[in-house]
């Protein structure tokens, strides 16, 4: 598929280009909805479509007023701060518990490994609406419903599978003779972990953490049920905005979130390559 042979027939040529056009259309379908909101968010009017001024590239057709609204509206600001308070705490919990468990799970002899794995991965498997329902029932019983810690614990549980998967994947290539060598040279287990094992698996831990962060940061179903008005996060505010009366400020928020996602994606990609290089695997 890497190029057309010189002897290709007309039908082959036709199909070759038609196939590329089809793929191009699918790529367009994938990316266009995300790209299109970026210019729309600079709309000077409160419309959700391109105004004639915008199409004429007239500077008057563009403005930052929706961004201005996001940064001054107390509802959005409150939501942003709640997101900033909840996501890092949830990430911290999932990463610290998850990394420890991933190290345990990668030992050569783990009792009930499959069952343990199934339980720890389950928050990723169970549909969010079911997790949300269960957590709502149970957290109301124990008085966590509608509290900051309730949301943090729920989000930490949802982020754990991602940490487990990425960190165990990093540990697969880990050379255990390194820890033995460290022990041989007189390091105690804590020093061995801190000086030898941790630096090597750090890329995996960080990308697991980023997955957990984005899970919490983007999560809306669970927080809708487990949280109360005091824990209204950015996605929740967007959800309400979309359901009740849609305001163009949402497009500005969406653009900001797309930028954050793009940065996170780039970070994870760089970490993945670095990790593979460290473990002596070929990049890609």
């Amino acid at each position: 598929m890497s190029g057309l042979p010189p002897y290709a027939s007309f039908t082959q040529k036709l199909w070759y280009y038609a196939f590329r056009v089809i793929c191009g259309v699918v790529f367009f379908f994938l990316i266009a909805p995300i790209i299109v909101i970026v210019p729309l968010s600079f709309n000077a009017e409160d419309f959700f479509t391109f105004t004639p001024e915008m199409l004429a590239l007239d500077p008057d057709g563009y403005s930052l007023k929706h961004y201005n609204d996001f940064f001054t509206n107390p509802d959005w600001q409150q939501a942003m701060w709640n997101s900033i308070r909840i996501a890092p705490m949830a990430t911290l919990l999932s990463v610290s518990f998850g990394t420890l468990a991933a190290i345990g799970l990668s030992q050569p002899h783990v009792p009930f490994r499959r069952a343990l794995m199934a339980i720890l991965i389950s928050p990723m498997i169970v549909p969010l609406i079911i997790s949300a329902a269960g957590m709502y029932f149970f957290y109301s019983r124990v008085g966590l419903q509608g509290s900051y810690w309730g949301v943090v614990l729920a989000h930490a549980a949802l982020g754990i599978p991602f940490v487990i998967i990425t960190v165990t994947a990093t540990l697969v290539g880990f050379d255990r003779s390194l820890t033995r060598a460290a022990a041989n040279l007189g390091a105690n287990p804590v020093t061995t972990f801190a000086k030898v094992q941790m630096p090597l698996i750090l890329p995996g831990v960080i990308s697991g953490g980023l997955f957990a962060f984005i899970t919490s940061f983007d999560e809306v179903v669970v927080v809708l049920f487990v949280g109360s008005a005091g824990q209204k996060t950015l996605p929740w505010q967007m959800f309400t905005g979309l359901r009740e009366q849609i305001s163009p400020t949402i497009l500005a928020v969406a653009t900001i979130l797309v930028t954050i996602s793009a940065i996170l994606l780039a970070t994870i990609e760089i970490l993945r390559r670095r990790s593979e290089r460290l473990r002596g695997m070929s990049p890609g």
Binding site: I34, A254, S261
Partner: peptide
Amino acid sequence: LPFWTSLLVRTS
């Protein structure tokens, strides 16, 4: 990029 973009963003 779509995979990483917030669900709410894509829905909106």
